[in-house]
Design a protein around this nucleic acid. Structure first.
Lengths: 204, 204
DNA sequence: GTCTATATACCGATAGAC
DNA sequence: GTCTATCGGTATATAGAC
């Protein structure tokens, strides 16, 4: 694969970005060295500078390419569950205990957030992404409300922000103390914000 | 002040811890150098090693001494507001736009959380602190419920975790996009979780 | 206990061969 | 475009004077 120069170049770029995502998540943005990232991508540090110019350039490119399929993947898996509590449980599990090797995307998200608080460029980009996520969630919940599955006690335009906030905050506490912040807590919170009236039986 | 050796030693220790908190928050745990911390404390790097042995030792000592007066300070200011929406607004403001120079404690909290995800010792300590915070919030809300000020749609034992989660998640989004995540959004979320039935008029 | 000076190591970035 | 070699800077941590 990757016969032409352009293809090889694109392949190297992808490898570097993927390695950077994994390394940043594992060791932190500061803790991850250019050499380590390049090694993971089976390249050398020189290639990083040829493609991105600097470590910051690499990070901004990563932030740009970082398609957060969370909302998509989450809603996709949610659709498979028949009952509402089952759907909410699937949503929570995707956050708390990611199934695939996508286990590191949550960690990377926190790394990027902390970086963004100190760099205006990254902050603007990340702010855009979170706006998109909120909008996606809001639209989805609007449909649920319209179909009568839920009766949220708040307006649709704030529901996205509240759900995202609750999931992030619960996930952070869950990481510190998995037993204390379990599925039962998450389901209670989601049900309260969404106005799920039926008894919240857990579907396992 | 600090005449005796013990007093001077304790004074140096306090200075170093305070400087470490500020530097860690400002530059990140990795980004903050021992020299910079010592300089802020009007000491030298040697004193850090005399007191804490290493940078990690300094951080663990900071984590240990880090009395999170958030719950205390927040509830204190909340008590001054007469109406329930006013109290909730005070709670949110303490998070979103801290009044004093305590502006950096939120940032430090995120730094510590990220560090804790990679170090078991710190994780256990931080987990304990969050348990305390949840318990404090839960007890406070239990009193409000008993006095009829609120009628939460969830059980008391999960209410602490949900409120903490919502506030953390909203604050993170607020930092990226202050205009999108404003007091109105926060009040709607808090009111939903707490079961504040009266129209949520904002008290300014 | 605190400071000065220094050892040691690593990182980001650059230069030049190919 | 990618690699090898290296420079310059800075970090943690230590040794020894006082």
């Amino acid at each position: 694969m990757a016969r032409t120069q352009a293809e090889r170049r694109a392949d190297t770029r992808d490898r570097l970005l993927q390695a950077a995502a994994a390394r940043f998540a594992a060791d932190g943005i500061d803790g991850a060295s250019i050499d380590a990232i390049a090694d993971d991508a089976d390249r050398t540090s020189g290639s990083v500078y040829a493609h991105f110019g600097s470590k910051e350039g690499l990070l901004l490119a990563l932030l740009d390419s970082w398609k957060n399929d969370v909302a998509v993947a989450a809603t996709a898996e949610m659709a498979t569950a028949p009952t509402m509590p089952g759907r909410l449980a699937a949503l929570w599990r995707n956050f708390a205990d990611p199934p695939n090797d996508g286990a590191h995307w949550v960690q990377l998200e926190h790394e990027l957030w902390l970086y963004a608080t100190r760099h205006a460029d990254a902050r603007d980009q990340l702010a855009d992404r979170y706006r998109d996520i909120r909008r996606t969630v809001r639209d989805e919940m609007g449909q649920w409300r319209a179909s009568g599955d839920i009766t949220p006690p708040v307006a649709d335009d704030v529901l996205g922000a509240l759900l995202v906030a609750l999931l992030i905050g619960l996930e952070m506490q869950h990481r510190l103390d998995p037993d204390a912040i379990d599925e039962r807590v998450a389901l209670a919170g989601l049900a309260a914000l969404l106005g799920v009236t039926e008894p919240t039986e857990v579907m396992t």
